[in-house]
Amino acid sequence: MSSTSASVLLSVLKLIDKHDLYGQVAYPKHHKQSDVPDIYRLAAKTKGVFINPAFIEPFGLTLIEAAAYGLPIVATKNGGPVDIQQVLDNGLLVDPHDQQSIADALLKLVADKQLWARCRQNGLKNIHLYSWPEHCKTYLSRIASCKPRHPQWQRSDDGAETSESDSPSDSLRDIQDLSLNLKFSMDGEKSGTSVNDNSLESEGSIDRKSKLESALLAWSKGISRDTRKAGFSEKADHNSSGKFPVLRRRKHLVVIAGL
């Protein structure tokens, strides 16, 4: 036994002796898991109270176990017991740092038989809300209440068209526009570069840019031509502005990126 546990046990024994509570306090040294239900039943049968005065209780499973056997509770007001008490309404919450508050709550439940009986009845009546079937039912009902969401691309300007299009030519036209803008952007960078910068730029970098421009333009024009033959050509979008065209709303968008 650790020094902390030994100190607590010694304090309990001294209090038992001070108040002459021999035969009134049980502190089993060991117990099996199968003994726990009988301990709850014994406490409920003798009109007792289950207390969990933890400084912070993340959930409070023992409180639910006690309620399942009709045992009223006194629990910390810090953490999960607050939610449990709101659902079960079978006990009192206390400040774990206030000894007098804990004592008053215990005495109130033990002395007031009607309050004790009401807490016991509420616990037995509401405990099903913490069962697995009830949990699954609540979970599925929440999912069913969620509306299906279909993300859509929208134009950023106020006068955007609201119709959706599934035509492949939309994506192909965007690809072609992007390729043209890429060419213009590269040309602008070349023309705006100083003579000193041009002298420092390697021939390999220029060749890579030229090849990228040519390949992208040829690919986009070839696909666009094949698409027009198949009857998918559409009216060009004259409302696009800026360096890159604004995306139109559509159900599917294909992005092809290369490094």
Score class of each variant (00 low, 15 high):
K18P: 01
K108H: 04
A144P: 04
H135E: 12
E134K: 10
S131A: 11
A103K: 03
K47M: 04
Q99G: 09
P58C: 02
D207H: 11
E234G: 10
S156I: 15
N239E: 12
D207R: 13
L217K: 07
S220L: 00
G23W: 03
S131C: 09
N122F: 02
G70K: 00
H128I: 13
G91E: 00
D157L: 05
Q152G: 05
N122A: 05
A236H: 11
C119H: 03
K108R: 09
L92E: 06
I102T: 03
Y22S: 10
S2F: 02
S145I: 04
K29V: 09
D197N: 10
G188E: 13
G60Q: 04
P58N: 00
A111W: 00
V25D: 06
C136Q: 15
N90A: 06
A218C: 07
L93G: 05
Q85A: 10
G188V: 02
H31K: 10
I16V: 11
D174E: 13
R248D: 07
S179F: 04
S7C: 07
A218Q: 14
L71V: 03
L21H: 05
H135T: 15
K221S: 08
A67D: 02
D187N: 13
I206K: 14
L140Q: 12
E189A: 15
S163F: 07
T227A: 06
K235P: 05
L61K: 11
I102P: 01
N126Y: 08
L140C: 07
P53I: 02
S11Q: 11
V49S: 03
I175Q: 15
R173V: 06
S171D: 14
T76M: 03
R149P: 04
A68C: 14
S240T: 14
P148R: 07
